[in-house]
Structures are given as C-alpha cells and as structure tokens.
Design a protein around this nucleic acid. Structure first.
Length: 576
DNA sequence: GCCGTTTTCGGCCCGACTGTTTTCAGTCG
C-alpha cells in the first residue's frame, strides 16, 4: 500500500506550489488531496487501476492523472518543473516561526537566499530589514527563531504524557481557583496519539484569579503570555499549555472550535455557509440578521447545523460530518464496555506484580476476567517461561480462580513469532493454554516479504488467536517494521483471527487508521489490551479505547467487551 | 484544481495577532 508515500508527494507539491506563488486555491486543492489519500483505508494503487480515483472527494481529473503518473513513473512532472524554478531548501526557511511561503519567496527573489545559512548571514548583516514588508523586528525574530529551532528536538509528546499532565493542571485549578466549567480540548480531547500543545478552556466570574492560580502552578517553567482571556505557559517537559477564559454563553462554541481538528472545523464552516449560517468560536450566527442562534453547548452548535453531536475522536474530517448529517453515526465503544484485559505480564516473566495483584486491580476496575499472558521462553531478556513454568502458573491460577469467583483468570501466553515464523513451542504443547497471543520481538529488520510471511504463518496456526502489537512501532522511537498489513488482514479473515490494539502509550498499535481498515475492509474483530507490566499500567486501557474510537469501532467490534459467559463460549468455539 | 437542491463559472473558513503600514498583508491555529 503506497497511500502514505503518495500523500507525502502531494504535501510536497502543495508546499512547492505555494512557494512558487501558484493560485492559493490550487495549493489548497493539493493539500486536500494529500489529506484524503492519507485517510484512505483502501490502497490507492487499487483505485488507480480501477479508474476510481475521481470518486474520492477533492480529487478531479488533473490530480488523478498526477497520481497515476507518480505510481507509474515515480515522479510528477508538475513537481519536477517547480523544483527547477524554486530551490527545495526554501522549505527549511518556512519552518522558522513567522516565516511563510510569501516571505521565503521574497527572501529568495530579492536577496538570493536559499538556505538557513544564507538567511543567517543576511540577518546578521542587517540586510533583511531593507526588504519591503520586513523591518527591524522581523529581522530580530528571524535570528531568535533560528536559535530556538536548534534546541527543539521532539515537537509532539505522547498522549500518555500530555493527558495526565493536563488532568493534573485542571484538577488543581478546580480546587484552587474560581472556575465554573473547565475542559481539556485540542488533540488531547480527540485522543490523538501525540500532542502538540495543551488547550484548556474555562468559564469564570473572576478570570484574573484563575490566571493567577494558573501561572503559579508547580508545573510552570516559564510564562509566555499572560492576559485576561488567554495565558500561555511552558511546562518542564517544554510543552505549551494555553488557558482561555470564555463567556458562558459561548462555552459550547469555544470547546467545539478549540477541539478541532482544523479540517473538521473548516468543513463545518463550509457547511454553515451553505445553510446561510456562520460559525466561529463565539457561536453560530445567522448570516442575514447576524443573530446568534447557538453556542452555549456543543450539542447546540452541531444541532444548529442539522447535525448529530459528533464524538471528539471522530473529528478528523474523514466522513463523520456526512454521517452526522444523515444521523447515522456509529455508537462508539466506551471504556465501560471493556469487560476484561487479555494481555498482561507478571513477576513470572518481566512484570513487577503478582497474578493476584493484577487480578485484584482488574476487579477494582470492574472487569470480569483477565488473561495472564507472560512472555514465552525464546524471549530470554524478558525471563520468558518454559512449558513447565506455565504449568506451575496454571496451578496457581486454578487456586486463585476458586478464591476470586466469579472473577476469572485465564492462562495465556505471549508467544514469539521467530525469524522463520515458528513459535516457542511445538503445537502439541500449546493445548494447555486457554488462549495464545503471538507477536514479533526479534529480527525486525527482515524484508517486508519475510516479516509478512512470518506473521501470516502465526495467523494460520490453529492455537494462535491474537496477534499483538502487529506493526511493532514505537512512537517517537522506532519505525514500524516493514509489513504488508493488507496481506495479514486477509489471512486473519480466512482464519477468524484477531488483531490487538495495544494500549501502551508508546505503541498504540494497531494505529487508528489500520484498525479502521481492519474493520471496514476485512470485517475483522479486534481486542483492546494494555500489555501491562504493573497494576498501574492496567489503567492505560483508556488510550486503547481512544484509538478504537478514532477508528470508529463499536462495542461489537471488540472481543473483550464480551461478558465472562460469552467470552468463555468464544474461547471454546475457537478451540475447535 | 475542485465543485454544484441556488452555480458548469465563480466561488473556495474564521478570527487573532504582529509588524508593517496610514488601511493591510502575512502568519498562525
């Protein structure tokens, strides 16, 4: 599947066209096309061969031709032409805060500036301020921007870091300042896997007191801006937090606006215009009379546009607005639907808590069952278990099950898919497990063909039910290994196998788009598991549920929403 | 370059902020 690759090309094309000063609407069309391609769950090659590209909203004959040319020849004529006209290195200059395409173009045309280095020299010699539309301050800002760019390493942090941080802040504000309503918005509310900055919205009768309390929080490393309606601070993680105070009758419109996504909001505003309305962060207004018709609650904003309220996790302009118009939004899976966790480790392998401790925490969370799935022997580094050790574990579990009834613990294993696709143990040994999970932990550098074949072999194994962290990615860490997920999903469909959404914040694997594809294109079931190595990390389940909701999954799509009774029947069925 | 229960031509999201300007362009989210 080459969707990502093709989308990247169109992002590049949009950037270059913008630098070249092309019609802004043409630039927008390229951007829109890139986004649409990125969000597809079917391979773009398929649509190209079947001549269905123009069925995608935002892709017409001209862009369709460019896609076909790229797939065929690995290049797009238009992009090659642009590169002859404009040096690609100008894209670097655009990354400096305050520098956009227009200014980059002026710098190139008037001073011949092509690279960051050229720019630095020109700014240091005071040449920038002589340009039309530039001044002393802009020149200074450029130099500052060049310096700050250097110490910026990672620009997005994991949801698993940002969400607890934001919750800590809102909790303290709620206790220590006169806030009425308070809500975390932005990409956190949409449960995106990584977060650029934190947006918190409040209503209050004494905004200045809220702002004072905010800047005095222990999380604050630096105050960036402090005003009556907006204050921004930097935390010690170098994460920017914006706190905004809004009027109570605009709270709904404001949280809608600041939750985004940008594309979702643009689409909503276009829809509003068609209906003779205007929408902004203050409310929904009648274009004719300029009278406000909604804004106090988020529901009222969507309703004014004739839409169902859309869950934040769906707000990416991937077709959710069209569904909301028809009142056909899916009922997304919820945290409270999860009845058990199927993937966790204990002191038997590399976990830090005992089976009983894990079970107790799970019961506290309201679960009806768990699967203990410690590592198997091939993963020596994680103290992987031999069959004998699993048999000991089985005895222990049987004892606990008597004690903890009606709660139930199942014996599982996280088997290793070895470099040739075989597992830690021969099939005849696997009968002792209630359920087998399998995943790749070694030899991740193999070719796509090899890795795909390896996992396919595990999928077809009679005893393996769930493939864990299927693409192996580590967010802000390592790339996923090369694997053809379509081939895996196809194989899983044949054998009725399940793929995991791993809730560990640095994995979230499958990703939202892959999980969406698994359901929509292959009709697969998924599991949402934590891969917990301690009682605390069992709580990570909410991140996995977030991914599932972003993938538009319902309760029925997730196997561990079954109650204990159904789940036992499910295990029996799959053993046949 | 795309798109159409007001359009096949003439539109194409909204507001805040900054710095450069005497009314606005560029950038950002």
């Amino acid at each position: 599947m080459r969707n990502k690759e093709v989308a990247e090309k169109f992002y590049e094309l949009a950037k270059m066209a913008e630098l070249a000063g092309d019609n802004p609407f043409k630039v927008r069309a390229y951007l829109e096309a890139a986004r649409r391609i990125e969000n597809l769950t079917v391979p773009i090659e398929e649509l190209a061969t079947e001549d269905k590209l123009t069925q995608i909203n935002g892709i017409g004959t001209s862009i369709a031709e460019k896609i076909k040319q790229y797939l065929r020849e690995g290049k797009i004529d238009k992009l090659e032409e642009l590169k002859k006209k404009i040096p690609e290195t100008l894209l670097e200059i655009e990354k400096i805060p305050g520098m956009g395409a227009k200014r980059a173009k002026v710098l190139y045309e008037k001073l011949g500036i092509k690279t960051i280095n050229d720019l630095k020299h020109a700014a240091e010699r005071g040449l920038i301020r002589t340009l039309p539309g530039f001044g002393e301050k802009t020149e200074k800002k450029i130099l500052e921007g060049l310096n700050s760019m250097k110490d910026k390493t990672v620009d997005r942090v994991l949801l698993g870091i940002a969400l607890p941080l934001a919750e800590g802040i809102t909790e303290k504000l709620r206790k220590n300042s006169p806030v009425k309503k308070i809500l975390i918005c932005g990409s956190i509310r949409r449960m995106r896997e990584t977060i650029g900055d934190i947006d918190i919205l409040v209503t209050s009768e004494k905004p200045e007191k809220v702002m004072d309390a905010f800047v005095k929080l222990p999380e604050v490393k630096e105050i960036l801006v402090k005003g009556d309606t907006k204050t921004s601070i930097l935390t010690f993680e170098n994460l920017q937090v914006d706190l905004r105070v809004v009027e109570p009758d605009s709270f709904g419109a404001a949280i809608q606006y600041f939750t985004g996504s940008r594309q979702h909001n643009i689409h909503l505003r276009e829809l509003a215009i068609k209906k003779g309305l205007k929408i902004n962060e203050y409310g929904v207004f009648d274009l004719g009379t300029n009278k406000k018709i909604a804004g106090e609650t988020e529901e009222s904003v969507y309703e004014a546009l004739g839409l169902q309220w859309i869950p934040p996790e769906m707000r990416e302009d991937r077709g959710e607005i069209e569904l909301a118009e028809k009142h056909e939004l899916p009922e997304l899976v919820e945290l409270s639907d999860i009845k058990g966790d199927l993937h966790m480790h204990t002191v038997y392998s590399d976990g830090i808590n005992t089976i009983e401790e894990m079970a107790n925490e799970a019961m506290k969370m309201g679960y009806q069952y768990i699967v203990i799935s410690d590592h198997a022997k091939a993963l020596g580094i994680a103290n992987g278990l031999s069959i004998e050790r699993y048999k000991e574990q089985k005895k222990k579990i049987e004892e606990l099950n008597k004690k903890l009834k009606p709660f139930k613990i199942f014996l599982g294993a996280e088997l290793n898919i070895l470099s040739d696709g075989s597992l830690d143990f021969p099939d005849k040994e696997l009968g002792i497990f209630d359920i087998c999970l399998a995943g790749i932990h070694t030899a991740m550098n193999q070719s796509e063909e090899k890795i795909t074949e390896r996992i396919k072999k595990a999928v077809s194994n009679k005893y393996v039910k769930i493939i864990v962290h299927p693409t192996g990615r580590i967010l802000n860490g390592r790339q996923n290994y090369n694997v053809n997920v379509d081939a895996l999903f196809n194989e899983a469909k044949k054998y009725g196998k399940v793929f995991e959404i791993n809730s560990s914040p640095e994995r979230l694997d499958l990703s939202d788009l892959n999980a969406k594809k698994a359901k929509e294109q292959y009709g697969l079931k998924l599991s949402i598991d934590t891969d917990a190595h301690s009682v605390d990390s069992l709580l990570n389940i909410r991140y996995g549920v977030g991914v599932a909701r972003r993938a538009w999954l319902t309760k029925e799509d997730i196997i561990n929403t079954m109650d204990l009774n159904e789940f036992e029947k499910f295990l029996k069925r799959s053993k046949k």
